[in-house]
Amino acid sequence: MHKGVEAKETILEIKDLKLWYKVYKGYSKVLDGVNLTVRKGEKAGIVGEAGCGKTTTVKSILGIIPEKQYLIPKGEIFYKGNDVLKMSEKQINVIRSGEISMIYQEPSAALNPVFTIGQQMMDVVRFSAQGKGKDKKEQQKMVLRAIQDVFIPDPERIFHFYPNQLSGGMKQRICIAMAIMTQRDLMIADEPGTALDVTIQDQVHKTLNTLVEKRNMSLIMITHSLGVARELTDSIHVMYAGNVVESAKTSEMFKHTLHPYTKGLMEAVPRLAGGGIQSGIYGSIPDYLYPPKGCRFAPRCPRVTKECLERKPEFTDVGGGHKAACFHI
């Protein structure tokens, strides 16, 4: 067992979270029991394909899904010991403004095109726990320092720019700057590099990594790329169709892959070493309106048995903190 991380206190714990979206035909049962633990100073990666509920999971932590659209039939989200789901709007706002920050996938959609970078960042400072009540000059200083922190030269000039005057990589850096402007304990990054080119992605990830480490923050990194997760995270949680199917320390995950889905995913990644591409995984993600009764991966699984189709496997510890939800391991 890895002691350095194990010993530290838990900052976020999601327990058996189920979330259903209300749609015309009924309930789209997107999250089906998500279990996730993030410790202080840990960099956790959530890996999964499109539509597996990665983004929904992190959005529910901050409570930013419009209330009318969903229902949580079961589950708890503990942030520093308190259940976020039971909090009032006022209590959640304290967390949003001073505890957790989030970076979105598409930087051009996250920034408002009709306000300058400076105006938008000043707003963030004004409503944050640390910036509240300070005078304008000091708030501006905080903004300029944040822009400098993400390695953008000449912050005074950038301050008066509109988002469209910046490149994609720059915009994403500004989003990171907004997220780290005031001291936060947990950062959620939702595919921060996906919309960018590889060389730019590499730079953005490095910036993010440096800042998170320097400020001793915890990080939840959402990505669909196992390669990105391997380079940036301490632990990996693989999601499939609304479940965390396997979670382990990053090095352990790549050494001993247990779940058939994770195995399939790893085999499907094209290797730099060559040697062709494996067959991939047959089929597609289930319809969330009518999800399979047993294991949600069963219809696509190469090792499926009768039991899988009838009963949902328990998410269990197989030793050393390596957890998986499958009958065949």
């Binding site: 590889v198 060389t199 590499d202 990105v228 790549f254 790893m266 290797r271 730099l272 070493a273």
Partner: peptide, 18 residues
């Protein structure tokens, strides 16, 4: 060279190839 070394890879073997 810059492109190849920026690719996130999933094994030590590939890391060597960069």
């Amino acid at each position: 060279k810059m492109l190849i070394s920026s690719i996130p890879v999933i094994s030590e073997e590939e890391e060597q190839l960069k």
